[in-house]
Each structure stands twice: as structure tokens, then as C-alpha cells.
Write a protein that binds this DNA or RNA. Structure first.
Length: 382
DNA sequence: GAATCGTGGAA
DNA sequence: TTTCCAAGATT
């Protein structure tokens, strides 16, 4: 495979393509064929994966791909099956109440995905007659669908040639070529190299190839202790030849996580508890939670003990022993819980009351679920 | 381009 | 206990 002749007015990608240094002992077509053979022999059964030869439902593909963003297969399985059973079509999901969708998503994390999921379903139902578009640019225009997901849906659901690059592909490609450029700077190069190996026609099975690349990364070319003896690309892999598989991909150093702390309020009245509906945007946006003081940075702020002014309702208060801890993507949170007993159920802004025995179905994100468990276990002494 | 945005499992 | 990381998107 040779580089194309130079043309005028090329973009950055085209320019980089000419400078790609292809130094593997085998050509792209051989790599693609070898990988597809491996996939046919090792294909995994997954809830969202069509059987060989069967047509996959674009709605199911889209739903699974959104859920799988930065999330493990094991964590997604149950959620995927519950969603598909409750909302069998994109029209059903579009017609669902937003809070019901958020409730069903609770615990899976990255809640902007759930908000975008519901918005996207509405767009597909309203603007696309209930059918997902098949072209990458049209898919990428949908809420929550970016570079990876648009390519994945096009390839897997419609067998359209598309360059699918996720974290698995990045790892496989950087090892195959022993790329010394750290992520994310290496992304454009990785995309170009992946595009060279990937199928360029529907007949060459773009969907299977994309899934094969990701399966290879997930089961063989793993971050730690890769199973190179089982790898179909073992003989071509430069990192393997160097004996330095685990050194790739290189990554830019990440910043340390700061710590924050807050005081949360477990407000009860009789057998009811008060929860907050959080603002629609930002951290845990749109989700239910406990009222609390602001989450203050531990390093820059003193242990501010001014929880009184943030008390949502006045009542008898009791500070529980101990704290709960939770780690988000970019900070740690330590929470002290104060039990507040109020005389009568009183409505307040952004607040809602639920029976205590329904807390488990309230759809609390994990950080709040920890606080609720703490309150119930430590606070039952009154 | 850097920050933001969850969670649970593995080492 | 801490760190890493998993089928990324958005701002």
C-alpha cells in the first residue's frame, strides 16, 4: 500500500498521512484479514451483539455504545437489558419521562450520558422518523454521539466503512507500531494508521473489524499482562519485538486529585425523608441527592463548620459518628452526615419527600447512596 | 487544549 | 490503601 500523490489544499490529516512511517513486516490487508479470522474463532456473545450473519438493531447498538463509554462491559450488561426491555424502541425511550430515564441510569455514572440519551432519542424520533441515520456526520450531530460512537454505530449497525478508535484501539495500535508519542497527542496518528488497516468496503466487514479490534484490546492486548502468545498480530507487533508491550500507550502525566468535604443532611419526618432534585447541569445534574453544604476544597479552606446556614429545614439535629468517602473522576469527597428530625412534612424549593422504604428506588447516585446507608445504619438509635 | 464528568473492579 | 482504568463527549 503506497501513499497517495500529493494534492493542493489538503487538511492536517492528509498531511500526516503522507508522513506515516509504515515499518511493519506485513501489509495492512494481511493484518485486517488475520484479525477477522481471529474474530471468527473467538467472537464473544454479548447482549447487544448480533449473532453471525444477523442484522443488528441500530437502536440497540446506539444504546449499548452510549452505556459503554468509559464503562466496563460487566457494569453495562444489566442496565442494557433493563433499558431494552422497558423501552424496546427509540420511540418508547423518546416518550419516556426524563426522570424515569435518569432513575434507570442511576449508578452507572456520567449522568450527562443519560440526559443526552433522552435528548437523542427525541431527535431521532422527531427529526429522523424514528430511524437512526447511517452516515457518520449525521450520527455525530446527535447529542452524546462523538467521534468514536458515530463511527461505531455506522460500522456495527450499518456495516459502513468507518474508522473506529476507542481506548482499546489506541492501545493496540500504539503497541503495534511502538508509537512513542504520548496520548492524547498521538490520536491523529493512531486514527490514520487504524484507517489504513480497517476495511474500505462493506464487503470487508467493517462492523466485525471494529468489534474485533476492541475485543482484541479487551481480551488479549490488555493494559497489564497482555496475552501476546494468543495474539493474531504477535509477529507484526513492534512493541512485542521490543519486549516492552506494557510501556505502550505512553500517556501524559495526570494531575493529582484534590480532596473536598461537606456536611449532608438526612432530613426525616415520620417515615419520610427529604431529598433534593439537583440542578439540570453539572456534576450529577438532574439527579436526586441529599441536601448538603457546599463541597469545599480541603486544602484551601478551613474546616468550615457553618452547616447551620445551609440547613434546609429546622428541627432536632444530631451529628452522626464517622464519615462517608467517595471518589469522583477529579476529586475525593468526605462527608459528615447530620440527621435532622422535623415535625411536619414541609415542601421546599427543589426538595421532595419520599417514604423511607422507597429510598432504594429513588435513583440516588452512588455518592448519595453511601450517605443514605450511613444515615440509616448509624442513625437508627433515635 | 485542558477540565469536567461516575463508578466499581483489579492489582 | 492507592492507583489505574473501562467500547468518550462536551465545553
Amino acid at each position: 500500500m503506497t501513499d497517495r500523490p500529493t494534492k493542493q489544499g489538503r487538511g492536517r490529516a492528509a498531511k500526516a498521512r503522507d508522513t506515516v512511517d509504515w515499518t511493519l513486516p506485513v501489509d495492512p490487508d494481511a493484518l485486517r484479514t488475520t484479525l477477522l479470522d481471529w474474530y471468527d474463532r473467538h467472537r464473544r456473545t454479548l447482549p447487544w451483539r448480533a449473532s453471525p450473519g444477523e442484522h443488528s438493531d441500530p437502536y440497540a447498538v446506539w444504546l449499548s455504545e452510549i452505556m459503554l463509554q468509559q464503562t466496563t462491559v460487566a457494569a453495562v450488561k444489566g442496565y442494557f437489558e433493563r433499558f431494552l426491555k422497558r423501552w424496546p424502541t427509540v420511540g418508547d425511550l423518546a416518550a419516556a419521562d426524563r426522570d424515569d430515564v435518569l432513575n434507570a441510569w442511576a449508578g452507572l455514572g456520567y449522568y450527562a450520558r443519560a440526559r443526552n440519551l433522552h435528548r437523542c432519542a427525541a431527535v431521532v424520533a422527531d427529526d429522523h422518523d424514528g430511524h437512526f441515520p447511517s452516515a457518520v456526520p449525521d450520527l455525530k450531530a446527535l447529542p452524546g454521539v462523538g467521534d468514536y460512537t458515530s463511527a461505531a454505530i455506522a460500522a456495527i449497525a450499518f456495516d459502513t466503512p468507518a474508522t473506529v478508535v476507542d481506548g482499546n484501539v489506541e492501545r493496540v495500535i500504539t503497541r503495534l507500531f511502538a508509537l512513542e508519542t504520548p496520548l492524547p497527542d498521538a490520536k491523529p496518528d493512531i486514527r490514520i494508521r487504524t484507517g489504513r488497516i480497517a476495511p474500505d468496503t462493506a464487503a470487508r466487514r467493517p462492523g466485525d473489524f471494529a468489534q474485533a479490534m476492541m475485543d482484541l484490546g479487551a481480551t488479549v492486548c490488555t493494559p497489564r499482562a497482555p496475552k501476546c502468545l494468543l495474539c493474531p498480530w504477535r509477529d507484526a507487533c513492534r512493541a512485542h519485538a521490543m519486549g516492552e508491550e506494557e510501556r505502550f500507550p505512553l500517556k501524559k502525566p495526570k494531575k493529582p486529585k484534590p480532596s473536598r468535604q461537606c456536611t449532608a443532611f438526612w432530613v426525616t419526618s415520620g417515615d419520610h425523608v427529604l431529598l433534593e432534585r439537583r440542578p439540570a447541569k453539572g456534576l450529577l445534574g438532574g439527579m436526586p441527592g441529599l441536601f448538603s453544604t457546599p463541597w469545599i476544597d480541603t486544602d484551601t479552606q478551613d474546616m468550615a463548620d457553618d452547616w447551620q446556614s445551609h440547613l434546609p429545614l429546622s428541627g432536632n439535629t444530631r451529628t452522626l459518628p464517622g464519615t462517608t468517602r467517595h471518589t469522583f473522576t477529579h476529586f475525593h469527597l468526605e462527608t459528615r452526615v447530620i440527621v435532622v428530625s422535623v415535625k411536619v412534612v414541609t415542601d421546599i424549593e427543589n426538595g421532595f419527600w419520599i417514604p423511607l422504604h422507597h429510598v432504594e428506588e429513588a435513583g440516588l447516585p452512588t455518592v448519595f447512596k453511601k450517605m443514605a446507608v450511613h444515615a440509616v445504619s448509624k442513625g437508627s438509635g433515635t
